[in-house]
Amino acid sequence: MTSGPPPDPTSLRSAKTMDKGGWRTLPAEGRPGDLPEWPLTEATDRELDLWHDLWAKPQAVMWEEMGQALEVALFARTLAEAERADARVDVKKMVRGYLDSLGLSVAGMNRNRWKIAPAIEEPVEVPSAAPAPARRPSARDRLKVVPSGEGP
């Protein structure tokens, strides 16, 4: 566990670290390619679902680069166990630790000095605005101006 707040990529002090190559921008579309081979003993269906979902995340680019398939598999197995209704508290705490160390939490992203690139959005066609409804006449519109000097 580290002490102090996580680094802030927008702060001036962190900007100095960023100049040294400290921050890494991950692709918003996630990691392309095939899944790594499951490194543990026989996986459950839930573990394989988590394994598939995890390797599609932007952070998976870094896990692959750093050879963290075993850590990701252990996280998937621990998370599947923590999801059970009778899960022990220490298992749930382990999940929190994995979230941080694998960069799956905001604090973990900051500690690993990772940020996700903005997603490229497809242009959205905006329908043309409908004509404004006709304005109802107000009480003021019904008043008639009578020039002075004219009268009954």
Rank of each mutant, 00 (worst) to 15 (best):
M1T: 01
S3C: 00
G4E: 14
G4M: 12
P7H: 13
P7G: 14
D8T: 07
T10P: 00
T10E: 14
S14A: 15
A15N: 04
A15M: 09
T17N: 01
D19A: 15
K20S: 08
G22A: 15
W23S: 05
P27S: 12
A28C: 05
G30A: 08
G30I: 03
R31P: 00
R31C: 13
P32D: 15
G33D: 06
D34M: 08
D34R: 14
E37S: 13
W38S: 08
P39N: 11
P39W: 12
E42M: 14
E42N: 10
E42A: 15
T44W: 06
D45S: 08
L48H: 10
L50N: 02
W51V: 12
H52E: 14
L54W: 00
L54K: 07
W55K: 09
W55Y: 12
A56R: 11
A56L: 07
K57D: 06
V61P: 03
V61I: 08
M62S: 12
E64N: 10
M66S: 07
G67M: 03
Q68Y: 09
A69M: 02
E71W: 08
A73E: 03
L74N: 09
L74A: 12
A76R: 03
R77E: 11
L79V: 07
A80N: 01
A82L: 09
A82G: 01
E83F: 05
A85F: 07
A85D: 10
D86C: 07
A87C: 02
R88M: 06
K92S: 08
K93T: 00
M94I: 00
M94N: 04
V95C: 13
V95M: 12
R96S: 13
L99D: 03
D100R: 08
L102S: 10
G103N: 08
L104S: 04
S105R: 06
V106E: 12
G108K: 02
M109C: 03
M109L: 14
N112I: 01
N112K: 12
I116R: 07
I116K: 02
P118K: 08
A119I: 13
P123M: 02
P123W: 06
V124M: 00
E125T: 15
E125K: 11
V126C: 04
P127T: 08
P127L: 09
A129R: 13
A130Y: 00
A130R: 15
P131I: 05
P131F: 05
P131Q: 06
A132M: 10
P133T: 02
R136M: 00
A139N: 09
R142F: 08
L143A: 09
K144M: 01
P147S: 12
P147G: 11
P147M: 11
S148E: 14
S148C: 07
S148P: 09
E150K: 12
P152R: 02
